[in-house]
Amino acid sequence: MPEQKMPVLETRKLGISFGGLKAVSDFNIKIFPGELVGLIGPNGAGKTSVFNLLTGVYPPTEGTVILDGKPLNGKKTYQFVEAGVARTFQNIRLFKQMSVIENVKAACTKDIEYGLFAATFRTPKFWKAEKAVTEKAMRLLEICGLADVSELPAASLPYGRQRKLEIARALATDMKILLLDEPAAGMNPTETAELLACIQTIREQFGIAILLIEHDMSLVMNICERIQVIDYGQTIASGTPSEIAANKRVIAAYLGE
């Protein structure tokens, strides 16, 4: 079992309080390379807060996030990304006025090595780096099925494709673990199926770990290998999809007793 390997992402007693309100407490999770883990819970259970803790948007008030054995305490969001955590957002946050390919290229910024001088005077180093980043961006857009719209403004895409673009942008950061915050929210069944196929392709091609927040139960039960359920900021269950589906506390949390 994966327990022998080192987890790519691990949290220990992670928690955050806003004033007197404990939004998340004692959150422990281990995600191993290549795994797809689901995080579910009723509305307001603290799922997005967990994501914000895992990406450094909120500094935790207790506990630690450990990536590849290294604690990330006190780091800023962009440093989390540099370390290898990338995310998408529940309410899509694209760079709306930029073109589709520019969105992806912007996420490559941290890996582009030329400096101000090379950029303003267009040295060969600049052209080489720009060529590499364009190729990389096109490759990612092809994987996500967006190559045909690469020059259009991001805001002009239909909803389902905006979601995919957000995933492509996250992929451009070369992360080790991808956090998807309700990727299927507001999608119709066809779009959800397409998204599912896209996620599968990404797993096969990149071999990365994915943590997924989702309300669409059929999607979660279908693709997740493990599921962790939280309610009122506390973990109430974790296990395989079939275990979760049969768990009494989970059913109680979702449907009431």
Binding site: V57, V81, T109
Partner: peptide, 10 residues
């Protein structure tokens, strides 16, 4: 366009 997304993109 979006400062939060920008920092989440590294």
């Amino acid at each position: 366009d979006d400062e939060i997304a920008a920092s989440a993109s590294g």
